[in-house]
Design a protein around this nucleic acid. Structure first.
Lengths: 117, 117
DNA sequence: GCTATGTACCTTGCATAACTATGTATTATG
DNA sequence: CATAATACATAGTTATGCAAGGTACATAGC
């Protein structure tokens, strides 16, 4: 591979991973606004519509945290064939919390836009 | 205090802290684009112009990490009176890396906007 | 002289969360 | 019958924000 540019690739990779911290919870809650999803489907949904890939080993612990915080609830749904699916949905508290998070995100976005130029 | 809303205040607080992971490095590098800053000044600058507060215990270790990654360099500047200041500036590598980070941030912003609707 | 406040730097230890790797189980496909 | 895709789960590693502590200088008020 030819030397193209002096940017620090490994640093950027780690940075992206760090940016995801917090961001993923926000994304998941936002997606669940519209309708219920099961874990695997949620990952696919996000991958399809955005540039964000959520690893399974990331999502399931995340969903458990959100459940513990009572922001989402879950229920098992048997399938005619195949493995049963665990569907997640926003609780009332989840909706209120998401609203608060949206405010902060908008503020952050504005702040960074201001600094970037 | 009257009960106003069912959102989870502590969760939101922790979440904001998580969102800062990665975000702060991005912010600092962006600020240093324009001109050199010393640590204390950088905190004040960001606080003044945005909604973001960077704790000292966050900034100094962060600057050391950025230095170790050779994204910024620093130099001590003696003052006529008072404590000498450590001024930070972007390196060539820092500039290239920041460019890459900006691309990802734009992408992320777009993705979230899409999901938030 | 003493105290408080503001400036300016630094470090330790804790909590948190993403990711890799690994494991389980079911169904469809070649 | 082996592979891929679906679907959930956990352990261990790593990175980082922040509270809390510290050092040091300068100024203002009592």
């Amino acid at each position: 591979m030819p030397y193209v540019c002096s940017m620090n690739d490994e640093f950027v990779q780690k940075w992206k991973s760090q940016v995801k911290k917090g961001t993923l919870a926000f994304i998941v809650l936002n997606v669940l606004q519209g309708k219920e999803y099961y874990g695997y489907e949620l990952i696919e949904e996000v991958k399809k519509h955005t540039a964000i890939e959520i690893a399974e080993g990331t999502l399931y612990p995340l969903m458990n945290r959100l459940k513990k915080e009572t922001l989402v609830s879950s229920k098992w749904v048997e399938q005619d064939s195949g493995i049963p699916r665990k569907y997640y949905s926003l609780t009332k508290e989840g909706i209120a919390t998401l609203k608060e998070m949206k405010l902060y995100w908008k503020e952050l976005e504005k702040s960074i836009k201001k600094i970037t130029k």
